[in-house]
Amino acid sequence: MEYAIEVRNLTKRYKGFTLDDISFALPRGTVMGLIGENGAGKSTLINSILGIADSESSLTAILGLDMKTHSKKIKEDIAVIFNDSHYDINLTPKIIGHILSKVYKNWDGPLFTEYLERFNLPEEKKIKKLSAGMRVKLEFAAALSHHPKLLILDEATSGLDPVFRDEILDILREFTEDEDHAVLMSSHITSDLDKIADYIAYLHEGKMQFIKTYDEIRSDYGIITCGQELFDTLSRYDIAAYKKEPCSYRVLVKNRTKLRQIFQDIPMENASVEDIMLFYVKGEKVK
């Protein structure tokens, strides 16, 4: 299988924080949602993959090329979008287009103009006069106009209202219709990932907790509300995390199908990505 991103044993150490031995692969034609609480290491992971921050790894390959030796070539084919515009607010979209035409070899001016029209972004209006949503749209227009094969979004949709976010998700869907394209998207807004992600990678305190397909998450994880007796009979290997409530336990189980066969009468809720994250962060682990 051809991967858009392949990372093996990536470690980045800061004072008081370590991104610890991360390995994962993002297949082409898919969207991976990177989730985790603030400070979990999502941006550090993205920065390390992109070579913005130096890190140790046995392999960091993007679009089949080693990032250490082919970073310039790779960056021609990727686009990174952050949660706000990083262009000078006194410049206009037209000037941004002019600048980027000198940055990227495969810059497509007519396509950029097309995106500006589609997003209702006036070419001559200064960025400072654009709303937060329009600025992010400008980032998308700029990012997509050099025909990237990989999009990396670092909390890009965080500051947007639901309508704007939905539009952005449509753009991403359109982008990944091409089987050669892929998206790595870090986000706090797990409902966005519910709509678009094929894979979910969950990072907690610098460690990768799991990488699963969205379907696996739906089929593997479930939430059981039970008393002490049932809680004690559950295998510790099936419990991802639990929360003790005044008269009961809420348990996130990670072997839903197996447990369903054993405990046929117990009600089991579906676990959303957000539920899983909250259980891992706030719940207790079985020792």
């Binding site: 070539k73 990083h86 940055v103």
Partner: peptide, 18 residues
């Protein structure tokens, strides 16, 4: 001055430049 205001350095480093 302009780069620091816009935090352009963060974006610039993602461009195809060493």
């Amino acid at each position: 001055e302009q780069d620091e205001k816009a935090n352009f350095g963060k974006l610039q480093i993602t461009f195809p430049l060493t």
